[in-house]
Amino acid sequence: MKLKHFVAFSAPALVLMLGLLLVPLITTLVWSFQNVPVGQPGVFTGLANYFEIFSSPRFGDATKFTIGFTIVVTLAKIIAGYGIALMLNRIKRGRMIILGLLMASYVVPTVIGALNFSWLFNDIFGGVVNQGLAIIGVNINWLTEVGPARVLIGLHALWHETPFVIMVLLAGLATLPEEPLEAAQLDGANWWQRQRYVVIPIMAPLFSFVLLISIMDSLKVFDSIRIITPAATSLGTESLMAFVYQVALGESYRLGIASAVNVLTIILTIVLLIPFLRMTWKEARSA
């Protein structure tokens, strides 16, 4: 393909991405150095927004919660997702039906899923989970206590996003080459050894893909927090994005501060992305 044709085919998408993604992104960067009241042009204030953020304990709490949430939920999702994918891969009859039903919690709009999920923990709606826990003598106020509220947000993420992990890893397991597995079996490798030295190394790209997506999505967690814990600030479940919303459109209209948080989140994300970007670059060049 010649450059001329490349430009002709990709121009609409490039113009669209330039105008509707890159320009807003640059605006965010500029705003992060400005005091921006809604509806008025910003006034340059240097690094004031960044100083304010870094001295704000609320931002610190939001960062800590978001990073902790990301680590715990990502690990839990991958372990649970791989376990379920392995089980699904072993059975033949009903596999597709089970997979389809498991996908429900993933494809349902997050807002609705989070709402219905939280009802199981809400005494107004009968609190089925609380009833179950009461049998073993445990009483937890999921929606009003800091620790349990955090656990609840994590459980929701696990329930909502594990099906994605299952789907990707099961697709990998289903297309696993047979020769290395047979060779390992002939050499007397047991199940754990075959997993450790054959299956998981072959599936490594899929694991890193799932890991990447999970980290990116978890760092941006927002919908479920708005629905399950509207009072996130006092419940210790305020994520970076929930903080951004509150600052920019909720309790105040400080677009400059919100943009500075966005910029910091972008930097964090890109740093985490670097290994994956190098992989993509190499593959695109060789293709």
């Binding site: 509707l20 807003p24 992104l25 605006t27 809604v38 951004v244 677009l255 966005n262 910029v263 989140t265």
Partner: peptide
């Protein structure tokens, strides 16, 4: 990248 970084300028 976070969608707010795109959507807040869109809002304005």
């Amino acid at each position: 990248i976070p969608r707010f970084a795109i959507v807040l300028p869109f809002y304005e």
